[in-house]
Each structure stands twice: as C-alpha cells, then as structure tokens.
Amino acid sequence: MIEEPKTGMNIIVKTVTRLTTGLILLFGIYIVFHGHILSEGGFAGGVVIALSFIHLMLAYGREIVLKKMSEKVSELLGNIGAVIFIIIAVLGLFTGGYLFFDFFGKGKPFNLFSAGLMPLYNIAISLIVGAGLFTVFVTLVFFRSEKK
C-alpha cells in the first residue's frame, strides 16, 4: 500500500508533473525565441513559462517551488525585464535620434537573429509577464487570513 503524501496531490499527479513540467518550460522558451519568425512572442511565452511553475506548485505544494524560485527572485526578474525594455528604448534615442530606433541591422530573414531588435523586446516582455504572473499567483492563492 502506497502512503498518502503529506503535502500536495497524490502520487500519480506528482509523477506526471515531474515528467511534463520541464517540457512545458522548454516550449515557453521556444515560443519566446521564435516569436518574430513563426508567431506570437513575448506575451504567450511569458504566460506559458509562468504556467509551468504554477503547475509544479499546484502538484507539489508551496514550499518546494519557493525553494527553487522565491518571491523575491521573481519580483527582481520582473523588474530586470522592465529595465531592459527601457534601456533598449533609450539607446535608440542616442544612436538614431528618436525613441525605439532600430540600430541593429535586419539580418538574414528566417534566421534566429534577424528582424532587428524584436528578439530583445520579446525577451524583456516575457520576463515582465512571466515573473509578474508567478508573483501574483503566489500572492493571491496562498493568501492567509491574519485573524486566524
């Protein structure tokens, strides 16, 4: 007889989660890096990355995930994404004369490094969205009442 674990769901859900959550994370990173070639970069990729951590947290409980990625670290990642977005925008002001100037070349089409600054913008947006949603989920769902 298999014992019921103390925290989280039962053992079937835990095994399936252990097998799939890395693949979900990889798929999110793939969407972010191929956003300018195929379709849909930063927003969907960031949400998929956040969903992989949420999946782990729903199956295993709170403490195991917060050991890997604590709230402070995820807040910091979101802020780093916002700073990257602003720095790229202001760099265009110095090199080309107006905000959001595209100072990279266009490169070869259908390559991974092409289309100017679009991959960098996608990475910054995915950092903001993914880290922000993970922080919001931890804050909202595991909210404890102060009276009890």
Binding site: H36, S39, G41, F100, P109, S114, A115, M118, Y121
Partner: peptide, 19 residues
C-alpha cells in the same frame, strides 16, 4: 521590418508605443 509575420511587425515595430 525584416519579419515575415505582419502582426508581429505591427506589434513590435510600427506601433511599438502601443505595446
């Protein structure tokens, strides 16, 4: 813009202020 996807071209180049 150098990208094949027109929606991403509008989103990240023509109308970047909206994003």
């Amino acid at each position: 813009t150098g990208t094949a996807n027109t929606v991403v071209a509008i989103l990240l180049n023509y109308r970047l202020f909206d994003t």
